Simulated assay, not measured.
Amino acid sequence: MKVSKAISERRSVRKFKSDPVSEEDLNKILEAARWAPSAGNAQPVELVVLKEKDQKEELVKASLGQAFLAEAPIDIVVCANVPRTKKRYGERGSEMYVYHDTAAAAQNIHLMALALGYGTCWVGAFDDEAVEEVINAPDNIEPHVIIPVGKPAESPNPPRKRSLDEIVHEDGF
């Protein structure tokens, strides 16, 4: 699949078939996240893959009841090892760059999953401390995004997007 097609055809999928994600495909998806850019190549991204039903049910509770997280065959929690970036960039690193870095990894996950025939959804609404407990995160790890991955059981319509004329400003606003 061409990148341009993956970008324009990616949708937020919230209904999944029970088909498993193959280990080969999962490794391709995780590898795509690993190759995402990071500030100063600090590589703060840490990935937690959840497959167990009990953990996924706990993730549903931590994510304010988003039940589709338990329906997906796997959930990937994209986390940041904050000290890795803070060491190099101080507060700006810990308050901004780690979010950029995990967002880039998450986007790569979405695009690779789609290219392999899977659906995903970007989940950012969750109780940080509850997710940290579910994944048994050490103190230096912050969860930033949860991504369910599985064969889609729905085909969402494309969302309305603002036109380029609305968002592009040449030489300033």
Rank of each mutant, 00 (worst) to 15 (best):
1 M>V: 13
2 K>Q: 11
3 V>N: 09
3 V>H: 08
5 K>Y: 12
5 K>R: 15
7 I>V: 14
8 S>C: 09
15 K>F: 07
16 F>E: 02
16 F>L: 10
18 S>Q: 07
20 P>Q: 10
24 E>Y: 02
25 D>F: 00
26 L>Q: 10
26 L>I: 05
32 A>V: 05
33 A>V: 10
34 R>L: 07
35 W>N: 06
36 A>W: 00
36 A>N: 09
37 P>W: 12
38 S>W: 10
39 A>I: 05
39 A>V: 09
39 A>N: 14
40 G>N: 09
41 N>Y: 07
43 Q>Y: 02
45 V>R: 03
46 E>A: 14
49 V>P: 04
51 K>F: 08
53 K>G: 03
54 D>A: 11
55 Q>L: 15
57 E>R: 10
58 E>R: 15
59 L>P: 11
61 K>D: 02
61 K>V: 12
62 A>V: 01
62 A>Y: 02
67 A>R: 11
69 L>P: 03
70 A>P: 00
72 A>V: 11
75 D>T: 03
78 V>E: 01
78 V>P: 02
80 A>T: 02
81 N>K: 09
82 V>C: 05
83 P>T: 12
83 P>E: 08
83 P>Q: 12
85 T>Y: 15
87 K>D: 15
88 R>T: 03
88 R>Y: 09
89 Y>V: 12
91 E>D: 14
91 E>C: 07
93 G>R: 03
98 V>A: 03
100 H>K: 00
102 T>A: 01
108 N>W: 00
109 I>Y: 00
110 H>F: 05
110 H>L: 09
110 H>N: 09
112 M>V: 01
112 M>I: 02
115 A>L: 03
115 A>K: 11
115 A>G: 14
117 G>P: 03
118 Y>L: 03
119 G>A: 09
122 W>K: 01
125 A>D: 04
127 D>Y: 07
127 D>R: 00
133 E>K: 14
136 N>D: 06
139 D>T: 08
140 N>R: 07
143 P>S: 04
144 H>A: 07
144 H>K: 13
145 V>M: 09
148 P>H: 15
152 P>H: 08
153 A>S: 13
153 A>D: 14
154 E>D: 05
154 E>L: 01
155 S>L: 07
155 S>Y: 13
156 P>Q: 06
158 P>I: 05
160 R>D: 15
161 K>G: 13
161 K>M: 11
162 R>H: 12
163 S>E: 12
164 L>Y: 14
166 E>L: 08
166 E>A: 15
171 D>F: 12
172 G>H: 09
173 F>V: 08
173 F>L: 11
173 F>I: 14
173 F>P: 06
